[in-house]
Amino acid sequence: MFSDLFKKLLYASGALGLYHRVRNARTLTVIMFHRVLEPTDARWAHCDPDYTLRADLFTSCLEFFAAHYNMVTADDVVRARRGEHELPPRALLVTFDDGWSDNVDHALPRMRALQAPGLMFVVSDAVGRDEPFYQERIIGAWRRGRLDGRVLAQALRRHGVQAPEPSDTGAAALRLLIAQVEQLAPEKRKALLAEIAEPLADPLRHMITADELRTLDEGGIAIGLHGKTHTPMTSAPDLDAELGGARAEMAARMPHRPAPVTMSFPHGRFDPAIAERARSAGYELVFTSVPVVNSTDSKVGWLLGRLGFETGAVADASGRFRPDLLALYLFRRPRRLLA
């Protein structure tokens, strides 16, 4: 209780804000969101709670950003990287990963209301597809009581994986099994998912459509790429397709816009050689999941860190927004120039 009170007083006194204004004057903070949903939306029961923010908390985050940062567009960052202008002090860019349709329904109206720009990284092959990625389908089936860890572990063992019996029925044990599914060869994974297709079946549409891409673009949300298939770049069988191929597909879908020059790495996985391959494929800004604030002391780097957070970083146990928690999390992140 004392610790909580101290955090609130530290924020209310303005001391945290002053610290931030001095320490982070010449930085670019990039925020990473995934899904934004209302609990009344049918998709709420299907989503992965670790990657989903309640819509009212999302609004509170935007208001916090507006109070403590200067929100910038993706084009602002590209132009600063080219040396065409400087970013304002304490610049902040809002980004979204994957290409979820709920970003159009719930995030976009709130961003428009606050005139907040953003950038969405879209998985090219997921555009126009109803079902989410298999990891989210597994989590969704578990949340709806249609699949448990024991069934998934049994399926893994049938495919030669030494998957132990889950010690409990919680999310942590399930995520360990999902990590083993990710390690399967593509054909084995496809066969395993086919075996449990019935509990994984999801009648809702989760992914963005081509029309919604245009809606986002017209609403001030720039479009970047998040790979072609959502496969981690470090294990992609065709890296050219994941990088240049995805970029060409998006350019064809949005002929009124130049080909995207921004991308982020699916699952945050990359190495220096892959990052350089991304530059060679035409991406001027490459976004990682390295949790740092980007220094702009000398220049804007082409390889950028991003800060993501779960609900516990912005709300208390009762679900109320806590600006002091968000300030303590964001203002103190390491400052680095990744490249």
Score class of each variant (00 low, 15 high):
His68Tyr: 12
Thr288Lys: 12
Thr59Phe: 05
Met71Glu: 09
Val290Cys: 09
Arg336Trp: 00
Thr29Tyr: 04
His159Ser: 03
Pro237Thr: 11
Tyr19Glu: 02
Leu204Ile: 13
Ala66His: 14
Glu136Gly: 08
Pro89Arg: 01
Ala42Tyr: 02
Thr234Lys: 05
His226Gly: 04
Leu174Gln: 00
Arg112His: 13
Pro260Asn: 09
Ile139Arg: 01
Leu337Cys: 11
Leu16His: 07
Ala313Ser: 05
Gly145Ala: 10
Glu182Val: 09
Val122Met: 05
Ala91Arg: 05
Arg322Ala: 02
Asp56Val: 01
Ala339Gln: 01
Asp271Cys: 13
Gly149Thr: 03
Asp56Ala: 08
Leu62Phe: 05
Gln154Asn: 10
Met263Cys: 12
His106Tyr: 14
Leu304Thr: 06
Gly282Asp: 13
Met111Leu: 13
Pro186Cys: 00
Val72Leu: 14
Tyr11Lys: 07
Leu28Tyr: 01
Arg322Ser: 02
Thr231Glu: 06
Tyr11Phe: 15
Ala241His: 04
Leu225Asn: 03
Phe270His: 15
Arg335Phe: 05
Leu152Ala: 10
Pro255Leu: 11
Asp98Ser: 08
Val314Trp: 04
Asp98Lys: 01
Ala275Met: 12
Ile274Tyr: 02
Val300Thr: 15
His226Thr: 07
Leu18Asp: 09
Tyr283His: 06
Asp76Val: 13
Gly224Arg: 03
Tyr283Ile: 03
Ala197Trp: 10
Val161Glu: 14
Gly245Pro: 06
Gly308Ser: 14
Leu216Asp: 00
Val292Lys: 03
Asp271Glu: 09
Met233Pro: 04
His106Pro: 04
Leu200Tyr: 10
Glu182Gly: 07
Ala327Cys: 09
Arg279His: 12
Arg158Cys: 10
Phe6Asp: 01
Pro166Phe: 09
Thr27Leu: 01
Glu165Val: 15
